[in-house]
Computed example of a mutant assay.
Amino acid sequence: MSGTGRTDDGRGRLGGVLSNLAVAVGCVLFLGGSAWAAVVYKPYTVPTSSMSPTVNAGDRVLAERVDGDEVRRGDVVVFTDEVWGATPMVKRVVGVGGDTVACCDEAGRLTVDGDPIEEPYLRADGTASPAGTPASGKDFTAKVPEGSLFLLGDERTSSLDSRVHLEDTDQGAVPRSAVQARVDAVVWPMNGMIDRPEAFAALPGGVSAVGPLPLQAGSVGVGVLLILGGAAYGPLAALSARRGRRTRVPAGDR
Rank of each mutant, 00 (worst) to 15 (best):
C103A: 14
Q171C: 07
A128E: 14
S50A: 15
K143T: 10
T111D: 00
S177I: 07
A185C: 07
Y41P: 13
R6T: 10
G230D: 07
A86R: 10
G153T: 12
I117Y: 07
T100G: 08
E146C: 01
T54W: 00
G126P: 02
V210F: 04
L225R: 01
L62R: 04
R176T: 13
T133N: 03
G3V: 13
M89E: 14
F30H: 07
D253C: 04
P53C: 08
P214T: 08
L18C: 09
A24T: 14
S52V: 00
W188T: 10
G33H: 02
R11H: 06
R13D: 03
G74P: 10
V66N: 07
P130M: 13
G218L: 05
G192N: 08
G85Y: 10
S148I: 04
R176N: 05
V101F: 05
C103Q: 06
G95Y: 01
V55A: 05
A135L: 03
G97F: 04
W188N: 04
V94L: 05
V78F: 03
E167N: 08
V112E: 08
T141F: 06
L21H: 00
C27H: 03
E146L: 11
L215F: 13
V207K: 01
D81M: 03
G33V: 08
D9I: 14
A57L: 02
L14A: 15
V94N: 03
F30L: 15
S208W: 01
L152H: 02
T45W: 01
P250W: 03
R65M: 08
V112M: 09
G234D: 00
D69L: 06
D184E: 14
Y44T: 12
P43I: 13
E82S: 11
V222A: 13
P189C: 06
G16L: 07
G230V: 08
G10T: 13
V101Q: 04
H165R: 06
R176A: 15
D168R: 11
A135C: 03
V55R: 04
A142N: 07
V96T: 15
A57S: 12
A251G: 01
R156L: 11
S49Q: 10
S50Y: 11
G244C: 00
S177A: 15
V76I: 15
V66D: 07
R109K: 13
G15W: 07
M193P: 10
G97Q: 04
V101C: 03
L239Q: 11
E198Y: 03
A86S: 15
S240A: 13
G97M: 02
R11E: 01
S2P: 02
P197D: 08
G205K: 08
E198H: 15
S129F: 04
L239I: 05
D139R: 10
T141S: 15
A232E: 10
A135E: 13
M190F: 14
G234V: 12
E119F: 11
S177F: 06
F79Q: 01
G10A: 15
G153L: 12
M89T: 09
D59V: 11
R182M: 09
M89S: 12
T111H: 07
Y121L: 11
S136R: 09
D67W: 01
R123E: 02
W188A: 12
V220H: 00
T54H: 02
G205T: 02
R72C: 09
V23E: 01
A231L: 15
R163A: 00
